[in-house]
């Protein structure tokens, strides 16, 4: 069920066409796959989750009595004796954004029914995500070795550690879940579950279709986008 064109549906231009379209029978988003609509709404809800976290972070940072640590010092990496601020984070961000690119290509090849390319690109995305999670684990280890804990922090306000571990942890969980699904979907693509009318999943009679790659892609781009905000709030502020 990839987004079909709807016959006999010509919309009037402008606001009127929009309201007619929105209010018309059967579907509100014409030709949009159920799963895709569902993912969009889920992401809207998830946006609220991350917004609540980040707003709490702003409020928490604003109301502590102790000074907030300097991110450029806390997050610096020592390469050959020189301290390079934000080096690790820059790499992490680069990897994640790149994986968004491979994901977009996977969707494109999926719709072109190019099974091989699609599968490899999904796999590449999964590996990008895995690298990101690995680097994040490295960063956590480094901070913990330096004495930063959720409840305390040698560089300043205790809330720094609390918010950092909570929010990056929550985001990292999102990435990890995404990685697991990317691997599963890579397998499904290679195994041809989306070809020739599609294979049914367990306990469901819905047939597989390349649109599922696009749906997973939406999630993946969202996780990237959230990372950009976290990056800005924790590392640049």
């Amino acid at each position: 069920m990839s987004d079909p064109q709807i016959e006999g549906l010509q919309l009037k231009p402008g606001f009127k066409g929009m309201s007619e379209d929105t209010g018309s029978d059967q579907t509100m988003f014409k030709g949009v796959h159920w799963g895709k609509a569902m993912m969009w709404i889920f992401l809207l809800s998830d946006t609220f989750v991350f917004s609540c976290f980040l707003i709490s972070y702003m409020k928490g940072r604003g109301s502590t009595l102790v000074d907030w640590p300097y991110p450029s010092e806390v997050f610096a990496l020592h390469v050959g004796g020189v301290s390079v601020p934000l080096l690790l984070i820059a790499i992490m961000t680069f990897v994640l954004i790149t994986s968004s690119g491979t994901m977009a290509l996977a969707v494109k090849y999926g719709y072109e029914k190019n099974r091989k390319m699609c599968g490899w690109l999904v796999l590449a995305t999964a590996l990008g995500g895995l690298t990101f999670v690995g680097m994040q684990a490295f960063e956590w280890t480094k901070l913990i070795e330096e004495g930063v804990r959720p409840w305390e922090n040698p560089f300043g306000a205790a809330q720094f550690g609390s918010f950092f571990f909570m929010i990056t942890g929550f985001h990292g969980t999102h990435v990890s879940i995404g990685v697991i699904f990317l691997f599963i979907y890579a397998y499904k693509v290679f195994a041809g579950h989306y070809e020739n009318g599609g294979k049914r999943g367990w306990f469901t009679t819905m047939k597989g279709d390349y649109v599922e790659i696009e749906i997973l892609g939406l999630y993946w781009h969202f996780v990237d986008l959230v990372w950009v905000f976290i990056f800005a709030f924790f590392y640049l502020w």
Binding site: D46, C52, Q159, M166
Partner: peptide
């Protein structure tokens, strides 16, 4: 749109309780 706020506050309070954070 509203349950996210409950979820977030529940997570933060759980951390205050078991990890000793001070949100």
């Amino acid at each position: 749109l509203a349950f996210p706020a409950l979820l977030v506050s529940a997570i933060m309070m759980t951390l205050d309780k078991i990890l000793g954070t001070s949100f």
